[in-house]
């Protein structure tokens, strides 16, 4: 089935090569955290760091290889809105965790 795909390069929005690389890196960055957790025995903090690093790396891989984000002026608004949303998401998620943990602590329900 892969043989029916013929590229002649120069495609504006991606190429077979780009998608194959995207898939390759996604598989690698998925396999690493799964393997680390499934094998087990690693330090908890190290495991957490590996999971988070691989997740963030894979998000970037998918944004670049699959969603074709770049820094061209054509995409400036996409990038600006994405950066804005990352900020909002960070405030919502980190802010909630922070506040609710303190709340639990003050209610003497923390572990």
């Amino acid at each position: 089935m892969a043989r029916s795909v013929q590229t002649h390069g120069g495609a504006a929005h991606g190429s077979v090569k780009e998608y194959v690389w995207g898939l390759f890196w996604s598989v690698v960055l998925t396999a690493i955290p799964f393997a680390v957790v499934m094998i087990g025995g690693f330090d908890g903090r190290l495991t957490l760091a590996i999971i988070l690093l691989c997740a963030v790396a894979q998000i970037f891989v998918q944004l670049v290889f699959f969603l074709h984000m770049n820094t061209s002026s054509e995409q400036a608004w996409n990038t600006v809105s994405a950066v804005f949303i990352v900020l909002i998401v960070a405030i919502v998620v980190l802010g909630s965790i922070w506040i609710m943990n303190h709340l639990n602590h003050n209610m003497l329900m923390g572990h």
């Binding site: 590229t7 991606g14 998608y19 194959v20 898939l23 799964f34």
Partner: peptide
Amino acid sequence: AVETGLLLLSSFTFGMAMLGAQ
């Protein structure tokens, strides 16, 4: 892991579909 593999692969196949459309 299998679930993840299915979804990941589907992202790739959608990319190939886009190339077909182009």
